[in-house]
Write a protein that binds this DNA or RNA. Structure first.
Lengths: 412, 412
DNA sequence: CATTATTTTGTGGATTTCCACAAAATTAAT
DNA sequence: ATTAATTTTGTGGAAATCCACAAAATAATG
């Protein structure tokens, strides 16, 4: 099939119609996606489609695992760096058959993709050329969509910011806005913050937004940007393990940012998980509290992301304030410190390590490079010197807290 | 030996002289004590004295174990209820040889004792009569001492009260007063409070004072009375186990008050142990904090006396305040509560009991009357439902605190 | 420098904990 | 009322803890 003149010169009303036209010309199923792999249009009269395409059409977005594998195999990076069509071999793990893809460009930016599934036949050089022309012809329509989405995005972000700062209080008002903007409802949510080392440029924002759009672990209801912080309203899917899901999300986000965009050192946190929207502001503040604590007390909190996981550190600022007014003097701690000082021992360090390792003798001994019996001996001495009963939860905990608090104070 | 006329008619200059006179007449060593068993005077020209008397003279007070045994054998109660001389058989445990005692009375009150040690000879009926007369004759001189002591006591109490309320601040000023009033210095001290069910009458005050004067476990530097509270400045003797000594003191005080005066239900507490006197006010406040906490949260604190032992409850009022402002919501706790509610389970109670029993599976199971495996199973469920890692000290502790805090809030 | 006190490491055995598995009992759901 | 899910109790064996004791190493003291 040879097309001397541009077969896409004629106007078309919708991108669906356009997809069908390409499909007719190339004799294979066509899918058009936006830059975030959301479905824009697809050709209708095809007899066969592979599982990946089916899933894409059903959920109106490309499945996350498909996107991940397209990144890993270098397909998407190639599409983002060249206007040339690219053949993708079958990746059967994710139900992806042979296909050819091309990116749609506006100036120096990719604003979408066209996919041609090679079901019956393999595309020729000329067919590839044709696909490239199709990409150019689709530009304007995709751009319109893109602009429209951007405008909506701005309105939505403004709304989110009002929620975060508590400028919209009543549940009714919030719900009205949610449905007006077609933001899906969710039974529970949390505010999540990614804090970057530098200010978030609009380029970076697009990259983040891209990763979020292609994430299906949690539902991202809203997001906005504030200096170095990328702030999200996210809804974990399960009622059973919301914390687990959020942690997973954070970790996979960090991995993706690192692998795909070489951005390291993102600090992440999320606030409490709540069920009604009045708590958005609170959850946000809690997320900020976690970040602030992670900054001030990094060694103790590096593995903590959620406000709940922050545990006793939630009230450390409160305790510190009182401590600095001279309260909560712990004579056990004082005595142990004095003993350590005088005899060059490590009783406090030992105590701390022991409880950091969940009162597990062997683990702690290993971590401290000492014999387990040495650890036992030291604990016995700690009990004697500090006059503290190590079988008493209350006393144990108090000393543990006081040790951490002293560390915190020293860092301050 | 018969003495028709009163042999004590003649004036005498000092009680020492008087003791010698009796000793001459009865041919045995004589000791005169005040109502609190402090040595007032003793006869000098005696060839033999038993260990109890020696110790009494050396330390200028009757040893505590001797007093205890005189109470147990009913000697002191008898002396306190009758003017008649009383023979005491040897109590060899405490180094007490045979002797005769008589109490010195002023109106209806005992203000001292005279002891005659039967070293060589046994006292006859007439000798006893003589001793009784001696007690009457000693009255005035002993009373003078008694009054003088009382006056000093008043001045000292006033001074102590100023210390407690922070009206004397500088260490210098405090030290000056201490030496002016001949209060012994002590390397470390704490303020201790006994709170009685009712106001402290002057009778009760005397009884308490009596017990304190005869106590040698800790050194009582100062005391005073405020409504229902008997407030003491005490100095533990050892540097190693001051807490232990103070706890012992409290427990033995309670026992004595019960056994000797049938007074139950004393609430006791003490503040921090400090080394410089500026902290007296603070220690006092801490002691009051303990008492207040014991009142508000009795089940959790019934075995706590010292401020240090109060542990995490030291900052419960602080936490409660924040909690009531809506902070520190713990979703793990919320979920567990919901689960308990819905399925009629006891997860929270189980968790609490487990840590109250120092994470000891067997003990806890016994206390809850369940199989140890049931406990394990419940803990596993708690971890799942609350999304909490039971191998993580921080998370464990936070939930424990939050459970106790919820209880505390409910009691409020 | 010698002596004493304290700390560390090692050994062995009784006890306890931890788990996996399974049967019974109870509760919830259709 | 039957089925399914959850909870409780039981058994047994591997692993870990605890403890007493002792030798070696180190630190403190006169």
């Amino acid at each position: 099939m040879i097309h001397k003149e541009d077969p896409f010169k004629a106007n078309f009303d919708s991108l669906e119609e356009f997809a069908d036209r390409i499909s007719d010309l190339l004799q294979c199923p066509i899918t058009i996606e936006d830059a975030n792999h959301r479905l824009i249009a697809y050709s209708a009269h095809d007899d066969y489609t592979d599982p990946a395409r089916t899933a894409t059409i059903i959920s109106r977005r490309v499945p996350e695992k498909v996107i991940n594998s397209l990144w890993k195999t270098g397909v998407i990076p190639a599409l983002l760096s060249s206007e040339e069509p690219l053949r993708v071999e079958t990746i059967s793990d994710v139900g992806l058959g042979n296909r050819v893809a091309v990116s749609i460009w506006k100036n120096n930016e990719v604003i979408g993709f066209i996919w041609a599934l090679e079901t019956g036949r393999t595309l020729s050089k000329d067919d590839m050329e044709l696909l490239k022309k199709a990409a150019k012809a689709a530009k304007n329509k995709v751009l319109q969509l893109y602009m429209r989405k951007n405008k909506r995005e701005e309105r939505v972000q403004e709304f989110f910011w009002k929620l975060l700062t508590g400028h919209i209080k009543t549940n009714e008002e919030i719900h009205e806005n949610f449905s007006a903007m077609q933001i899906p409802a969710a039974p529970r949510f949390s505010v999540l913050v990614f804090r970057f080392a530098n200010g978030i440029t609009s380029d970076l924002e697009k990259q983040i937004s891209y990763i979020l759009q292609t994430t299906q672990q949690v539902q991202v209801l809203l997001y906005t940007v504030e200096r170095n912080d990328f702030i999200l309203l996210v809804a974990p899917k399960s009622a059973d393990q919301p914390l687990y899901e959020l942690n997973q999300f954070i970790s996979s986000f960090a991995t993706k940012m690192k692998e795909r965009f070489h951005i390291n050192s993102i600090q992440s946190s999320f606030g409490g998980i709540y069920e009604t929207f009045e708590y958005i502001e609170k959850s946000y503040k809690e997320a900020l509290t976690v970040l602030s604590m992670k900054e001030k007390f990094p060694e103790q909190t590096f593995s903590i992301y959620g406000y709940q996981q922050l545990g006793i550190y939630q009230f450390f600022d409160l305790l510190l304030e009182k401590k600095q007014q001279g309260e909560f003097a712990n004579s056990a701690l004082t005595k142990l410190q004095a003993y350590d000082e005088k005899h060059h021992t490590n009783l406090i360090e030992t105590y701390e390590a022991f409880f950091d390792h969940d009162s597990n003798v062997n683990e702690t001994a290993k971590a401290l490079n000492i014999h387990p019996n040495t650890l036992s001996y030291r604990l016995k001495r700690i009990a004697e010197i500090g006059e503290i009963d190590l079988h008493n939860m209350n006393q144990k905990v108090k000393l543990y807290i006081d040790i951490k608090l002293a560390k915190y104070e020293a860092l301050h």
